[in-house]
């Protein structure tokens, strides 16, 4: 038999999405004890000592909502046997930053992204750029045709993709591979003129719907007056965090 702590350690090491529900308070006739737990992984109960099937069902339902909101929260569950105050601890899949193009912006981008606790993957087709010496902090450095590497990847809503290759002719085929993916963020570098032309080709030749094109953040990054590669990297990650956490990116003092 397994234990809660064993399951929790496995979840942390495998980077799985999970919710640990702990009963904090019990009112009414319910025989559930404070401190009882239900660990939900992949939408299923991985471990529980709640002992009340109706409560477990309610917890399972609420867990899905908490996980999609990525927010830990105390929730009151009204059950026939009484009211339970349950704390839902959300352990979302760790966010993944996929950096396509290992040029001069990628270097500070990877460094800052690691400080922000992203799992960072760098892709380039040139070993001279995509290597461990250049990216000692990256979790994965992949060398290969960039569009093809992206095509082979499983892209989940925990993925944030930054297209910063050395040229437009590389960004565009990459974007074509990922534009319909589940990735939460897709950003592409480039001038407004080139981006406009690219989007027009997507509309005309690939019949990509307008709302799909609108998902793409291009030109990439927040407007903070960047000048250096590191500042551009910060502007890109500022935008990524804004999308992840749902911020507005205005100065707090301007409210």
């Amino acid at each position: 038999m397994t234990s809660f702590s064993e399951e929790l350690v496995a979840i942390s090491e495998q980077g799985a999405a999970a919710v640990l529900a702990t009963v904090v308070e019990v009112a009414g006739e319910s025989r559930v004890e404070a401190g009882a737990k239900c660990l939900v992984r992949d939408g299923k109960v991985a471990a529980e000592n709640i002992g009340d099937p109706a409560a477990v069902e309610a917890i399972l339902r609420e867990s899905a909502a908490r996980l999609s909101a990525e927010k830990s929260q105390l929730v009151s569950l009204d059950l026939p046997s009484g009211k339970l105050e349950v704390f839902f601890e959300v352990m979302p899949e760790p966010p993944k930053l996929i950096v396509v193009g290992a040029g001069h912006i990628a270097v500070p981008l990877v460094q800052i992204a690691k400080v922000l606790d992203f799992h960072v993957i760098v892709i380039d087709d040139r070993l001279l750029f995509a290597n461990r010496e250049r990216f000692p902090d990256a979790d994965e450095v992949l060398v290969g045709d960039m569009a093809r590497v992206l095509k082979e990847m499983t892209l989940t809503p925990a993925c944030y993709i930054v297209l910063i290759t050395r040229g437009h002719s590389y960004d565009e085929p990459c974007l074509r591979e990922i534009i319909h993916s589940q990735a939460k963020y897709i950003g592409m570098i480039g001038s407004r003129r080139r981006i406009k032309a690219c989007f027009q080709r997507f509309r005309d030749e690939d019949k990509v719907a307008e709302e799909v094109i609108e998902r793409v953040y291009a030109p990439i990054g927040l407007d903070i007056g960047t000048e250096t590669p590191a500042e551009i990297a910060l502007a890109i990650l500022g935008e990524v965090i804004k999308v992840r956490r749902g911020g507005k990116a205005a100065s707090l003092s301007d409210r």
Partner: peptide, 17 residues
């Protein structure tokens, strides 16, 4: 996870927490 025509460049990969 890397696709066809790509290779893995060193490192311990999946940075386990």
């Amino acid at each position: 996870m890397a696709g066809l025509g790509s290779c893995y460049e060193g490192g311990d990969g999946e940075g386990k927490k």
